[in-house]
Amino acid sequence: MKKGTIKQILLITDGCSNQGEDPSSVSALAHQHGITVNVIGVLEDEQSEQPEGLEEVEDIAKAGGGVSRIVYAKALSQTVQMVTRQAMTQTLQGVVNQELQQILGSEKSMEDLPPEKRGEVMEVVEDLGETSNLEVLVLVDTSASMAHKLPTVKESLEDLSLSLNARTGNNRFAIYSFPGKKQPVHEIMPWTNELSNIASVFPRLTSGGITPTGPALKDVMYRFQSTPKLEGWGSTDETIYEETGY
Protein backbone atom coordinates (compact mmCIF):
# COMPACT_ATOMS: atom_id res chain seq x y z
CA MET A 1 0.00 0.00 0.00
CA LYS A 2 1.21 3.48 -0.89
CA LYS A 3 2.14 5.90 1.82
CA GLY A 4 -0.05 8.96 1.67
CA THR A 5 -0.50 12.28 3.29
CA ILE A 6 -3.30 12.62 5.76
CA LYS A 7 -4.89 16.04 5.82
CA GLN A 8 -6.68 17.28 8.90
CA ILE A 9 -8.25 20.48 10.10
CA LEU A 10 -8.31 20.85 13.86
CA LEU A 11 -10.90 23.37 14.96
CA ILE A 12 -10.60 24.68 18.52
CA THR A 13 -13.59 26.70 19.62
CA ASP A 14 -15.75 27.49 22.63
CA GLY A 15 -19.04 28.48 21.18
CA CYS A 16 -21.52 28.32 18.41
CA SER A 17 -21.01 29.92 15.07
CA ASN A 18 -23.20 32.92 14.43
CA GLN A 19 -22.26 34.13 11.01
CA GLY A 20 -22.13 32.73 7.50
CA GLU A 21 -22.93 29.28 6.21
CA ASP A 22 -23.55 26.21 8.31
CA PRO A 23 -20.16 24.87 9.41
CA SER A 24 -21.37 21.27 9.17
CA SER A 25 -22.06 21.64 5.48
CA VAL A 26 -18.63 23.16 4.91
CA SER A 27 -17.13 20.36 6.94
CA ALA A 28 -18.86 17.77 4.76
CA LEU A 29 -17.45 19.53 1.72
CA ALA A 30 -13.94 19.40 3.18
CA HIS A 31 -14.39 15.70 3.79
CA GLN A 32 -15.27 15.26 0.14
CA HIS A 33 -11.96 16.89 -0.66
CA GLY A 34 -10.09 14.36 1.41
CA ILE A 35 -9.68 16.53 4.50
CA THR A 36 -10.78 15.30 7.90
CA VAL A 37 -12.27 17.88 10.26
CA ASN A 38 -11.73 17.39 14.00
CA VAL A 39 -13.32 19.68 16.55
CA ILE A 40 -12.47 20.39 20.17
CA GLY A 41 -14.93 22.38 22.23
CA VAL A 42 -13.31 24.12 25.19
CA LEU A 43 -15.37 24.56 28.34
CA GLU A 44 -14.93 27.20 31.01
CA ASP A 45 -13.43 25.70 34.14
CA GLU A 46 -16.52 26.54 36.16
CA GLN A 47 -18.96 25.19 33.58
CA SER A 48 -20.48 21.98 34.85
CA GLU A 49 -23.12 21.36 32.21
CA GLN A 50 -22.58 21.14 28.52
CA PRO A 51 -23.72 24.51 27.15
CA GLU A 52 -25.98 24.71 24.14
CA GLY A 53 -23.52 26.21 21.72
CA LEU A 54 -21.24 23.24 21.91
CA GLU A 55 -23.75 20.87 20.37
CA GLU A 56 -22.54 21.76 16.92
CA VAL A 57 -19.06 20.54 17.82
CA GLU A 58 -20.11 16.95 17.34
CA ASP A 59 -22.07 17.72 14.19
CA ILE A 60 -19.15 19.46 12.49
CA ALA A 61 -16.78 16.59 13.27
CA LYS A 62 -19.25 13.98 12.17
CA ALA A 63 -19.82 15.73 8.85
CA GLY A 64 -16.08 16.09 8.42
CA GLY A 65 -15.33 12.43 9.10
CA GLY A 66 -13.38 13.40 12.19
CA VAL A 67 -13.36 13.16 15.95
CA SER A 68 -14.85 15.57 18.47
CA ARG A 69 -14.31 16.13 22.16
CA ILE A 70 -15.58 18.66 24.65
CA VAL A 71 -13.08 19.35 27.41
CA TYR A 72 -11.98 21.76 30.11
CA ALA A 73 -9.07 23.96 29.16
CA LYS A 74 -6.69 22.16 31.51
CA ALA A 75 -7.21 18.85 29.72
CA LEU A 76 -6.60 20.40 26.32
CA SER A 77 -3.05 19.15 25.71
CA GLN A 78 -3.86 15.49 26.00
CA THR A 79 -7.08 15.91 24.09
CA VAL A 80 -5.48 17.67 21.15
CA GLN A 81 -2.98 14.89 20.61
CA MET A 82 -5.51 12.14 21.23
CA VAL A 83 -8.06 13.57 18.81
CA THR A 84 -5.41 13.97 16.12
CA ARG A 85 -4.11 10.43 16.53
CA GLN A 86 -7.54 8.91 16.73
CA ALA A 87 -8.73 10.68 13.61
CA MET A 88 -5.62 9.52 11.83
CA THR A 89 -6.31 5.91 12.78
CA GLN A 90 -9.89 6.36 11.68
CA THR A 91 -8.89 7.73 8.28
CA LEU A 92 -6.36 4.97 7.75
CA GLN A 93 -8.83 2.37 8.83
CA GLY A 94 -11.20 3.72 6.22
CA VAL A 95 -8.48 3.24 3.63
CA VAL A 96 -7.67 -0.26 4.84
CA ASN A 97 -11.36 -1.13 4.90
CA GLN A 98 -11.61 -0.11 1.27
CA GLU A 99 -8.71 -2.37 0.42
CA LEU A 100 -10.42 -5.15 2.34
CA GLN A 101 -13.54 -4.64 0.31
CA GLN A 102 -11.53 -4.98 -2.86
CA ILE A 103 -10.02 -8.22 -1.62
CA LEU A 104 -13.12 -9.70 -0.05
CA GLY A 105 -15.36 -8.33 -2.75
CA SER A 106 -18.26 -7.24 -0.59
CA GLU A 107 -19.33 -4.72 1.99
CA LYS A 108 -16.74 -5.92 4.47
CA SER A 109 -15.00 -3.79 7.00
CA MET A 110 -12.73 -4.69 9.88
CA GLU A 111 -15.67 -5.10 12.25
CA ASP A 112 -17.13 -7.79 10.02
CA LEU A 113 -14.07 -9.93 10.60
CA PRO A 114 -13.99 -12.15 13.66
CA PRO A 115 -11.85 -10.63 16.45
CA GLU A 116 -9.10 -13.19 15.85
CA LYS A 117 -8.50 -11.86 12.35
CA ARG A 118 -8.63 -8.17 13.14
CA GLY A 119 -5.20 -8.17 14.72
CA GLU A 120 -3.26 -8.30 11.49
CA VAL A 121 -5.42 -5.65 9.86
CA MET A 122 -4.87 -3.40 12.84
CA GLU A 123 -1.13 -3.92 12.57
CA VAL A 124 -1.26 -2.59 9.03
CA VAL A 125 -3.28 0.41 10.22
CA GLU A 126 -0.75 1.06 12.97
CA ASP A 127 2.18 0.80 10.60
CA LEU A 128 0.54 3.33 8.32
CA GLY A 129 -0.23 5.60 11.26
CA GLU A 130 3.41 5.60 12.24
CA THR A 131 4.82 6.24 8.79
CA SER A 132 2.23 8.32 6.92
CA ASN A 133 2.81 12.00 6.41
CA LEU A 134 0.45 14.27 8.23
CA GLU A 135 -0.70 17.81 7.58
CA VAL A 136 -2.59 19.48 10.39
CA LEU A 137 -4.13 22.87 9.92
CA VAL A 138 -5.11 24.28 13.29
CA LEU A 139 -7.98 26.73 13.23
CA VAL A 140 -8.34 28.63 16.48
CA ASP A 141 -11.40 30.59 17.47
CA THR A 142 -10.11 33.89 18.86
CA SER A 143 -13.41 35.53 19.61
CA ALA A 144 -13.52 37.44 22.91
CA SER A 145 -14.55 34.57 25.16
CA MET A 146 -11.55 32.50 24.06
CA ALA A 147 -9.01 35.15 25.07
CA HIS A 148 -7.96 33.72 28.43
CA LYS A 149 -7.80 30.19 27.04
CA LEU A 150 -5.25 31.04 24.37
CA PRO A 151 -2.15 30.41 26.52
CA THR A 152 -3.45 26.88 27.11
CA VAL A 153 -4.16 26.45 23.40
CA LYS A 154 -0.60 27.51 22.65
CA GLU A 155 0.82 25.01 25.11
CA SER A 156 -1.31 22.20 23.80
CA LEU A 157 -0.16 22.86 20.24
CA GLU A 158 3.49 22.74 21.25
CA ASP A 159 2.67 19.49 22.97
CA LEU A 160 0.96 18.18 19.84
CA SER A 161 4.07 18.77 17.81
CA LEU A 162 6.11 16.92 20.44
CA SER A 163 3.79 13.93 20.20
CA LEU A 164 3.58 13.82 16.43
CA ASN A 165 7.26 14.39 15.84
CA ALA A 166 7.94 11.19 17.75
CA ARG A 167 6.49 9.37 14.72
CA THR A 168 8.53 8.21 11.77
CA GLY A 169 6.38 9.99 9.20
CA ASN A 170 6.68 13.68 8.38
CA ASN A 171 4.46 16.33 9.88
CA ARG A 172 3.48 19.78 8.69
CA PHE A 173 1.53 22.23 10.78
CA ALA A 174 -0.09 25.56 10.08
CA ILE A 175 -2.07 27.75 12.44
CA TYR A 176 -4.89 30.08 11.49
CA SER A 177 -7.19 32.10 13.69
CA PHE A 178 -10.66 33.40 13.04
CA PRO A 179 -12.27 35.86 12.66
CA GLY A 180 -9.59 37.74 10.70
CA LYS A 181 -9.60 41.49 10.31
CA LYS A 182 -10.98 41.68 6.82
CA GLN A 183 -10.83 38.08 5.70
CA PRO A 184 -12.52 35.11 7.36
CA VAL A 185 -9.21 33.87 8.77
CA HIS A 186 -5.84 35.21 9.83
CA GLU A 187 -2.60 33.33 9.28
CA ILE A 188 -0.70 32.95 12.54
CA MET A 189 1.87 30.43 11.42
CA PRO A 190 2.59 29.28 7.86
CA TRP A 191 3.30 25.60 7.17
CA THR A 192 6.14 24.39 9.36
CA ASN A 193 7.60 21.16 10.71
CA GLU A 194 7.60 22.04 14.35
CA LEU A 195 5.46 24.06 16.69
CA SER A 196 7.92 24.72 19.47
CA ASN A 197 8.48 28.36 20.35
CA ILE A 198 5.22 29.56 18.92
CA ALA A 199 4.76 31.91 21.86
CA SER A 200 5.95 34.95 19.92
CA VAL A 201 3.47 34.50 17.11
CA PHE A 202 0.49 33.69 19.24
CA PRO A 203 -2.03 36.50 19.28
CA ARG A 204 -2.76 38.47 22.38
CA LEU A 205 -5.38 40.59 20.72
CA THR A 206 -8.80 39.25 20.10
CA SER A 207 -11.70 40.58 18.16
CA GLY A 208 -15.34 41.00 18.95
CA GLY A 209 -18.24 38.67 19.39
CA ILE A 210 -18.74 37.19 15.96
CA THR A 211 -17.87 33.58 15.31
CA PRO A 212 -17.96 32.88 11.57
CA THR A 213 -16.99 29.22 11.86
CA GLY A 214 -18.43 28.20 8.49
CA PRO A 215 -16.67 30.82 6.37
CA ALA A 216 -13.42 30.20 8.25
CA LEU A 217 -13.55 26.48 7.58
CA LYS A 218 -14.28 27.12 3.94
CA ASP A 219 -11.31 29.41 3.63
CA VAL A 220 -8.73 27.09 5.18
CA MET A 221 -9.84 24.14 3.08
CA TYR A 222 -7.84 25.61 0.23
CA ARG A 223 -4.72 26.28 2.23
CA PHE A 224 -3.32 22.78 2.27
CA GLN A 225 0.02 22.24 0.64
CA SER A 226 -0.16 18.87 -0.97
CA THR A 227 -2.66 19.23 -3.74
CA PRO A 228 -2.23 15.87 -5.48
CA LYS A 229 -4.93 13.71 -4.04
CA LEU A 230 -4.19 10.08 -3.48
CA GLU A 231 -6.64 7.51 -4.57
CA GLY A 232 -8.40 6.00 -1.65
CA TRP A 233 -7.75 8.79 0.79
CA GLY A 234 -10.75 10.74 1.87
CA SER A 235 -13.47 8.42 0.90
CA THR A 236 -16.73 9.74 -0.38
CA ASP A 237 -18.50 6.79 1.13
CA GLU A 238 -19.64 7.85 4.56
CA THR A 239 -20.69 4.39 5.73
CA ILE A 240 -17.11 3.28 6.23
CA TYR A 241 -16.62 5.87 8.91
CA GLU A 242 -19.90 5.25 10.60
CA GLU A 243 -18.97 1.66 11.18
CA THR A 244 -15.91 2.60 13.14
CA GLY A 245 -18.19 3.77 15.88
CA TYR A 246 -18.45 7.50 15.64
Binding site: R118, G119, M122
Partner: peptide
Protein backbone atom coordinates in the same frame (compact mmCIF):
# COMPACT_ATOMS: atom_id res chain seq x y z
CA UNK B 1 -14.73 0.36 24.45
CA UNK B 2 -16.55 2.03 21.61
CA UNK B 3 -13.31 1.98 19.63
CA UNK B 4 -12.91 -1.53 18.19
CA UNK B 5 -9.55 -0.58 16.73
CA UNK B 6 -8.14 0.31 20.15
CA UNK B 7 -9.38 -2.96 21.63
CA UNK B 8 -7.76 -4.87 18.77
CA UNK B 9 -4.47 -3.06 19.32
CA UNK B 10 -4.42 -3.94 23.01
CA UNK B 11 -5.33 -7.52 22.28
CA UNK B 12 -2.39 -7.66 19.88
CA UNK B 13 -0.07 -6.61 22.69
CA UNK B 14 -1.50 -9.10 25.16
CA UNK B 15 -1.13 -11.86 22.57
Amino acid sequence: SDQPSAITTEVNVLK
